[in-house]
Amino acid sequence: MDSTETKPKSFNEIINGDTPVLVDFYADWCAPCKMMTPILQQLKSAMGDKLNIIKIDTERNPDVAIKYQVRGIPNLILFKNGELIWQQAGVVRMPQLQQIIEQKLEQS
């Protein structure tokens, strides 16, 4: 293996990083989950480097979904320094989502 290659980061490495992470738990068959994609794209362009956003398919990663008690999807979880600081199931509109995230990051 070439030393310049970097292996993909694990979920734990990502959520324990310096940048807060919003995780979107979804499934391909879930219609409300599809509604979150443009909302998350707007959020990323609004917040830029202050927030990482990743999507986790609950069907392909059931162990992670079980660990964080994801029972309904879409399910959003906000991590800061590896700590879960906010979680909500269901579609959240962009202005409300940005407000919640900024508020939670200020408090933690």
Rank of each mutant, 00 (worst) to 15 (best):
K80W: 01
K80G: 02
D24R: 11
K9D: 12
P62T: 11
Q42I: 04
A31Q: 14
L97Y: 05
C33Q: 04
A46H: 11
L105T: 06
K104P: 02
W29E: 09
T6G: 00
A65R: 03
M36E: 11
T58Y: 07
I66N: 10
L84M: 13
E106H: 06
S108G: 09
P8Q: 13
F25P: 10
M36C: 07
A27G: 09
G82C: 09
K50L: 01
T19I: 15
Q107R: 13
T6L: 14
Q96D: 14
T4D: 07
K7N: 07
N52E: 14
E106T: 08
V92C: 08
N75G: 04
F25Q: 06
L97Q: 07
K55R: 12
Q99I: 01
W86R: 11
F11G: 09
P32R: 14
Q42P: 04
M94P: 02
A65G: 10
C30T: 06
D63R: 12
V21W: 11
V23Q: 08
V92S: 03
T58K: 05
Q96S: 12
Q107W: 06
P8Y: 08
K50D: 15
D63A: 13
I56D: 06
D18S: 10
N81I: 00
Q87V: 01
G72H: 12
K9W: 02
I53D: 03
A46M: 07
P32I: 13
D18F: 00
A46D: 15
K7F: 04
M94S: 07
S45Y: 04
S108I: 00
K7H: 10
I54F: 08
I14N: 15
K44P: 08
S10C: 07
M36Y: 04
Y26M: 09
K44M: 01
G82K: 12
L76F: 10
P20V: 08
N61Y: 13
D28E: 10
N75A: 09
V64Y: 06
Q87P: 05
L76G: 02
S10H: 11
K44R: 11
G90S: 03
M47C: 13
M47P: 11
G82N: 04
L76P: 06
